[in-house]
Amino acid sequence: MRAAVIQFPGSNCDRDMAVALANVAGGAKNVSMVWHKDAELPKGLDVIGIPGGFSFGDYLRCGAIAARSPIMDAVVEFANKGGYVFGLCNGFQILTESGLLPGVLMRNAGLKYICKDVELRVETTASPFTSRYTVGEVVTVPVAHHDGNYSADPDTLKRLVGDDRVAFRYTETPNGSMDDIAGILSANKRVLGMMPHPERRADAQLGGTDGVRFFEGIADALVSA
């Protein structure tokens, strides 16, 4: 499995994401760090991760400027061809701004930056990212964001729920997200965005391992494909 992590100015979860991917990809040699100004992705790529952080200082809107970076044309093309792409936290914001996922992440309802562990309920196993969990299972993963309040128009929301595209819900929403949504999938279930950070729960010595299966699921999908 060959993975890439896109780095933007202000990304700060890129190394954690790369380590979590390397653990399931047979080592760091199979994970490329790709700078946002590059126009092309490495050849033979299987999965792309868009990391958390504060790309471009959250200027204009969170993720808005990163979503228009040169590399994002290639990322969108990769996703449209059926490639696996996931965005965590700021990565989720970038994926909605790029149009790969519907809806928008607005300012938290309480207006405060929230940094704490939250409980997530797994809502579907019909994606590589969630295939190693069980439906209804509750996992603990941290959030760290100021703008994670998921919002979409009623038709979009209905489609997400009806088409089994809600990946995770908060057991108790910390940020006001519609329908307690923490993470969603694209129509082909190969693009995922979520505000919580599974890459920060992927090492027993660093708080827990509830996030490990997120990455193992990706590796499973690629081995069987």
Partner: peptide, 9 residues
């Protein structure tokens, strides 16, 4: 349309 506004909201 391309950058300054997010026309979803």
């Amino acid at each position: 349309e391309k950058l300054l506004a997010n026309t979803v909201i």
